[in-house]
């Protein structure tokens, strides 16, 4: 059972638990035999090379995808077994930040953040306004409320999307590649926001990324995915000094190792010498 340094006294306080989950599109297996425990109040970073099924994992937790084997529990309930209405009720307790920010392009920044409030709370407009301004203030963009999404930089768009994700005061936030394509300043802001929001709002955060440095800076606990399964997990320091060759290759970013530099191919020499013969 993993436990976070924030919550050492209650190691069993698990918000999300992934229990022997496998997933595939048709015959193609993407994830197999995944086991994870996400402790309440912690920032859990899931790392792995591109295309290893990290985003799929978020889809499974959010109930957008159904596991072909195994189960995902959110606060003790099986996510895949929920009916649509119950699933929607569950999703009000989680926020998600997409890599593309996914702001609604026909609404202003203000209306984007107000969207979940207006959809679900039926609050008077004056209260919605105050709540939206509070959320925007948290991400430092209160002044940008009248801009359209097209007028925002990538980093700003992601902060607006973050304000929208916390609009309903969720218990869990899922971040899909929050560091991809950001300039250093935006990167610093994002790191600070993830950590501060997590601690200030008593959230639980799942961050999916392939950036080792940033991941290590905010993680309480890390999982490393490879070959569709978990190849290592532990606190960031343990992971950085892991003796496992696969973990070490990813954490240090070595070009060759257990994951070979060359895509599987026939013997180089044989193929070159054979080239003339094969064409005729």
């Amino acid at each position: 059972m993993p436990h976070s340094p924030h919550n050492p006294a209650r190691p069993a306080d698990t918000l999300v638990s992934v229990d022997n989950v496998s997933f595939g599109y048709g015959p193609r297996t993407i994830l197999s035999g995944l086991d994870m425990q996400i402790t309440r109040g912690s920032v859990v970073v899931v790392m792995g090379p591109s295309g290893c099924g990290k985003s799929t994992l978020l889809g499974l937790i959010g109930g957008r995808l159904a596991a072909s084997e195994g189960r995902v529990f959110f606060d003790g309930g099986d996510v895949a077994a929920l009916r649509r209405r119950e699933l929607f009720a569950l999703r009000k307790r989680m926020g998600m930040l997409f890599q593309s920010s996914a702001l609604l392009t026909d609404l202003s920044v203000f209306d984007n953040v107000a969207f979940p409030l207006r959809e679900h709370c039926g609050l008077p407009e004056s209260l919605v306004r105050n709540l939206v301004l509070m959320k925007l203030h948290m991400v430092g963009l209160r002044g940008a409320r009248d801009l359209r999404p097209a007028e925002l930089s990538g980093g700003m768009a992601r902060r607006v999307a973050l304000a929208r994700a916390i609009a309903l005061d969720p218990e869990l936030i899922l971040y899909d590649e929050p560091f991809a394509g950001l300039d250093p300043v935006s990167l610093g802001v994002t790191l600070k926001l993830i950590r501060e929001l997590n601690d200030a709002l008593r959230l639980t955060s799942v961050v999916v990324t392939h950036d080792v440095d940033e991941g290590c800076r905010i993680a309480d606990y890390m999982y490393l995915l490879g070959r569709g399964t978990i190849i290592g997990h532990g606190a960031p320091q343990e992971m950085l000094h892991s003796g496992d060759p696969e973990v070490a290759q990813f954490m240090q970013g070595m070009p060759d190792g257990p994951v070979p530099f060359h895509y599987p191919a026939p013997d180089y020499r044989a193929e070159l010498l054979d080239a003339g013969g094969a064409r005729s």
Partner: peptide, 8 residues
Amino acid sequence: MSNTATGG
């Protein structure tokens, strides 16, 4: 949905 957006 309210149309607070300009142009409503």
